[in-house]
Design a protein around this nucleic acid. Structure first.
Lengths: 219, 219
DNA sequence: AAAAAAAGTGATGTATACATAAAACAATAC
DNA sequence: GTATTGTTTTATGTATACATCACTTTTTTT
């Protein structure tokens, strides 16, 4: 990763570390440790941590430090509930405003998703995550509403804390041993292409709920 | 205001200045100017500005600074659209989870709102703003979903940029010369007290839309 | 030996000096 | 007169030294 902007670099690096399970819930992210390991001063690290706290990715104790919030089934329900409805709104809005290029973009992603090689490997998992992110945040972007987009992005990332935590999900397989995402992504995209706002919204809500249920099958 | 925590002090002071119309859209909030006028160093000011940017109060240009976002009818439609639906969700959730104390809290606010003295004065305006914030963010809190609450808070404040800009609104009067907010607040609260999630949601959505329409009557 | 007081530790909180880059301006070429 | 390049300005971006406060450990007192 480029170090042009140290603040941005610190921000992205810390998120990356969190998503790569570098820390466990309750761990303190010390400014000095991070600045050492990222090889920059405390200032940009401190800045990045503040943002992450403001955005709700981290919790903070005054004069003590920032720490990874403890995930709870309750909190997961809250994120996914918010995410479900907000992405539903975004999908409806996307169905209204999507250009031909946007729709092509979504179909391309689904093609890529179907053709990920060596499913089950670490590389395949990373590919799925990347494509999935592009799809969901893509629809958020296509909604043309920067507020919806921002909230989608936030709840998406926050929900990914859980997806990485209970990472059984990214086997990418449902209980029947089949991938559900590409099919659902396809249906959503079709609804958007058909300009069917309500259907796009409903399918997206259902899709997010499916993700949640697959994750928390045992909770 | 106490200066125990300089970062908090800076944060609150800057918000206060913004809300008191100290700046106009497009104005840059310079770190050095602010730190001079608040009589502290750039560090806490810079920190506060970062938070305000993260929270969407301010926009930022890299290496240039933080500035008051310029309102546009398009942007206003986007904020109010997002706010309408998210506050609708929060109201539904609040109808489900509100405690007796919560409901009393809401009724108390409505009482206070009805009894604001000397309508039309600057003091009355500030009182309305304060009460209105407590009501809307109160419902967000009562939803018991911290994500919904966060998005409510964000879109609420962002929409307030417009409310303060076109401040005809806080005459508090509708085209017929009557205050509409207390009545709508009362109806929403009743729906919450009745545990009628759908009604609470619909009324809240309608209420936010009313606010928008009163603001943009001429746009 | 238990409790209270005091000193020590280690992190964040704050101020400030310096580096860097965007933007404004001036000078020059055309 | 306009466009383009070079210089200056100025505010942010970054590093770092020092202050402060919560917490821990040690010491003292009873």
């Amino acid at each position: 990763m480029a170090k042009k902007n140290l603040e941005e670099f610190a921000y992205k690096s810390i998120i990356k570390m969190i998503l790569e399970n570098h820390f466990k819930p309750g761990d303190f992210l010390l400014e000095t440790e991070l600045s050492d390991s990222l090889e920059l001063s405390r200032t940009p690290v401190r800045h990045a941590l503040s943002l992450l706290v403001a955005e709700g990715f981290l919790d903070k104790k005054k004069k003590k430090g920032c720490f990874i919030p403890s995930p709870s089934p309750q909190d997961a329900r809250h994120v996914f509930y918010a995410r479900e409805h907000i992405e539903g709104l975004a999908a409806a809005s996307a169905a209204r405003y999507a250009s031909a290029g946007d729709i092509e973009f979504l179909y391309d992603l689904i093609e890529k998703e179907k053709n990920v090689e060596n499913p089950g490997t670490r590389e395949a998992k990373i590919a799925y995550v990347t494509i999935n992110e592009s799809f969901h945040l893509g629809i958020a972007r296509i909604s043309l509403n920067k507020y919806l987009e921002q909230y989608c992005r936030h709840s998406f990332w926050r929900s990914h804390t859980y997806i990485f935590f209970f990472d059984r999900y990214y086997s990418g397989l449902n209980p029947n041993g089949q991938k559900t995402s590409p099919r659902q992504h396809m249906e959503i995209t079709k609804a958007i292409a058909d300009r069917d706002e309500e259907k796009a919204s409903d399918l997206m809500k259902q899709h997010v709920r499916t993700t949640f249920e697959q994750l928390f099958v045992k909770l």
